[in-house]
């Protein structure tokens, strides 16, 4: 029972990181209808921004978070303007977006390797506030890492803020309307170009937060962009383009993963993840909560 609860806690903590990444993915997908494979690289950049803000600039922790999130938000918007907008203007098929995103991902990852180097970096403990330093808290009979708790709390705050923004503000409603029907909402006076910049900025900011959290829990290294493949699976699992779906998919995927590696085998964990992806696509391609396929035609 104890082991079960421990796995559950681990799963929730990893799931919250997946969710931060997957929500950004899904948000962009809901508007643009393509999988932004460069999202993982933006997350990796966020981890580096946070790391250098703390170590090189010596900024306080909260400010470093802010620097990372705004840096990635700016970067994601710049990527959209430079790489995706010309394709959008030309009404290129979705594949060109995917290939461009992959090219951008190769470009960003290798630029980091070529300039900063491939060696993993660890957040220095001294620069972190006390509630984020390694070590664990005992809750009942469970040992819960402080970083895990922080990850869970920060993710919850970010996602709650996002939900409030999307449900309560005018800009959020504009995003919803554009996701529902871009042409019709443009006719109603919603500027699709602005909405697209907005979703890339939000997705980028969440990516920055996710990158710093992930880097804190593990390490910061250029290949960490590939881990975001998991968040992508989570987004498909929950239903591409659906934010609650991305959250649900992330938590479910992380729980399945931790339980498989806890009770079955660590090596088979990824096989399960990809197996779920394929099974989901075959049985219910729109995911748990996605729009129906007809809408995506």
């Amino acid at each position: 029972m104890n082991q079960f609860l421990q796995q559950l806690v681990n799963g929730l903590s990893i799931g919250s990181i997946y969710a931060l990444m997957a929500v950004g993915y899904s948000l962009v997908y809901s508007i643009m209808n393509f999988s932004n494979f460069a999202h993982g690289s933006v997350i990796m950049l966020g981890a580096y921004f946070g790391f250098f803000a703390l170590t090189l600039l010596g900024l306080p922790f909260a400010l470093a978070f802010f620097v990372a999130a705004s840096g990635t938000a700016l970067f994601a918007v710049a990527l959209e303007r430079l790489a995706y907008k010309p394709l959008r203007d030309r009404k290129a098929p979705f594949l060109y977006f995917i290939i461009t995103a992959m090219g951008a991902s190769i470009f960003i990852d290798n630029s980091v390797i070529a300039t900063i180097g491939p060696t993993p970096k660890t957040f220095p403990q001294a620069s972190l506030p006390s509630f984020l330093r390694s070590g664990s808290v005992e809750i009942g009979s469970l040992n819960v890492g402080r970083v895990d708790i922080a990850m869970f709390v920060i993710t919850a705050i970010c996602l709650a803020a996002l939900v409030l923004f999307i449900d309560k503000t005018k800009m959020g409603k504009a995003i919803q309307a554009t996701a529902y029907n871009m042409k019709a909402s443009a006719l109603m006076g919603i500027n699709p170009g602005f909405v697209i910049i907005l979703v890339f900025a939000i997705g980028g900011a969440l990516a920055g937060v996710a990158g710093v959290l992930y880097g804190m829990k593990y390490q910061v290294y250029p290949q960490m962009s590939s881990i975001t493949m998991k968040s992508f699976i989570a987004a498909v699992f929950g239903g591409l383009g659906s934010l609650p779906g991305a959250l649900l998919g992330s938590v479910l995927l992380a729980l399945i993963e931790t339980f498989v590696s806890g009770y079955v085998s660590t090596q088979l964990r990824d096989l399960f993840a990809f197996g779920i992806l394929i099974a989901m696509l075959v049985i219910r391609p729109q995911g748990i909560m996605g729009k129906s396929m007809e809408d995506k035609a």
């Binding site: 790489a83 290939i99 461009t100 992959m102 090219g103 951008a104 991902s105 190769i106 470009f107 960003i108 990852d109 290798n110 630029s111 070529a114």
Partner: peptide
């Protein structure tokens, strides 16, 4: 890096 850029 050049390869990724060339693709874009």
């Amino acid at each position: 890096v050049v390869y990724g850029l060339a693709v874009i």
